[in-house]
Amino acid sequence: MQRCEITGVGIITGNQISHSHRLSRRAWRPNLQLTTITVNGTAVRVKVCPKALKTLKGLNESETIKFLRANSATLSSKVAKALNK
């Protein structure tokens, strides 16, 4: 399943509405980007949404760890494991 490994943003479902107002199910998928972040000296490859990527862009390692701890409820297991080392 497509899910941001930091913020937890995932697939959203709803209806596609045609001109005649017929409804059919559809899904909006997140724009996930593959990037590498350094957590406690360990390089971790993660899939993140652009909002999290923009936040992480200018941060050093200690600020990155602080940001990850703030989002600890939605972290993936591999990021949480690297954070707790």
Results as ranks from 00 to 15, higher is better:
68 L>S: 12
29 R>G: 05
7 T>G: 12
43 A>Y: 01
73 A>H: 15
52 A>S: 14
21 H>S: 08
14 G>V: 00
48 V>W: 00
63 E>T: 07
39 V>L: 01
12 I>Y: 00
37 I>P: 11
42 T>N: 00
11 I>Q: 04
58 G>F: 09
70 A>L: 11
65 I>W: 02
4 C>F: 06
61 E>C: 04
15 N>A: 09
28 W>Y: 14
50 P>F: 08
27 A>F: 13
7 T>R: 07
53 L>V: 09
25 R>Q: 13
32 L>H: 04
71 N>M: 12
34 L>Y: 04
74 T>V: 09
30 P>E: 02
32 L>G: 03
56 L>Y: 11
65 I>Q: 13
18 S>Q: 00
44 V>Q: 00
84 N>D: 13
81 K>M: 08
29 R>A: 12
56 L>R: 01
72 S>E: 15
32 L>P: 04
35 T>P: 01
75 L>W: 10
21 H>C: 03
8 G>P: 12
15 N>W: 07
45 R>K: 04
22 R>M: 04
7 T>H: 04
29 R>E: 14
56 L>P: 02
8 G>W: 11
59 L>Y: 08
69 R>G: 10
71 N>W: 04
82 A>F: 11
38 T>S: 10
62 S>Q: 13
49 C>S: 15
78 K>E: 08
43 A>E: 09
74 T>P: 15
66 K>R: 15
34 L>A: 07
20 S>V: 01
17 I>V: 15
38 T>D: 06
6 I>W: 07
54 K>W: 12
31 N>Q: 11
50 P>M: 12
55 T>F: 06
53 L>A: 09
61 E>Q: 14
36 T>G: 00
49 C>T: 07
74 T>M: 11
22 R>W: 02
25 R>G: 08
44 V>I: 02
6 I>Y: 06
76 S>G: 15
43 A>T: 04
36 T>M: 00
11 I>H: 03
13 T>Q: 11
7 T>C: 15
10 G>N: 01
78 K>R: 10
2 Q>V: 10
46 V>C: 05
75 L>I: 13
